[in-house]
């Protein structure tokens, strides 16, 4: 399974990671070798086998719909890169 340059660019965009143009061949090559390794899965006979998401097949636990957490906004925002009036700041999105 070999990935070409444009596929690497598409995946990088999906993952919101910027890759320098000159590094793309290197990524294409290492990602392709990982996908070659993964390709061995095709030899497994998985007919009639249910996919397994949890080692003990446990399901999501439910709880009462009640308030359990107290407000930590100031504490959590004290480690944010940029905040103002209790809001997280990002570059302007709408003109």
């Amino acid at each position: 399974m070999a990935l070409d340059k444009s596929e690497v660019k598409d995946i990088a965009h999906l993952a919101r990671i910027a890759i320098d143009e000159d590094k793309i061949p290197e990524y294409a090559s290492s990602l392709s070798s990982i996908l070659d390794l993964v390709e061995q899965l095709q030899s497994a006979d998985t007919d009639n086998i249910e996919p397994m998401a949890h080692p003990l097949d446990a399901t999501q636990r439910l709880r009462e719909d009640a308030v359990t957490e107290s407000n930590h906004r100031e504490e959590y925002q004290s480690i944010a890169p940029a905040t103002e009036d209790g809001l997280y700041l990002v570059p302007k999105v709408i003109d």
């Binding site: 993952a15 899965l41 095709q42 497994a44 086998i49």
Partner: peptide, 26 residues
């Protein structure tokens, strides 16, 4: 992250992710 984004992307999910989860049960 890139491998993960690829195997979860539309069109590849069943061939990779679901196949791996079935193999996990084996």
């Amino acid at each position: 992250i890139l491998i993960g984004a690829y195997v979860l992307s539309a069109g590849f999910y069943d061939a990779y992710y679901v196949k791996a989860q079935k193999t996990r049960r084996l």
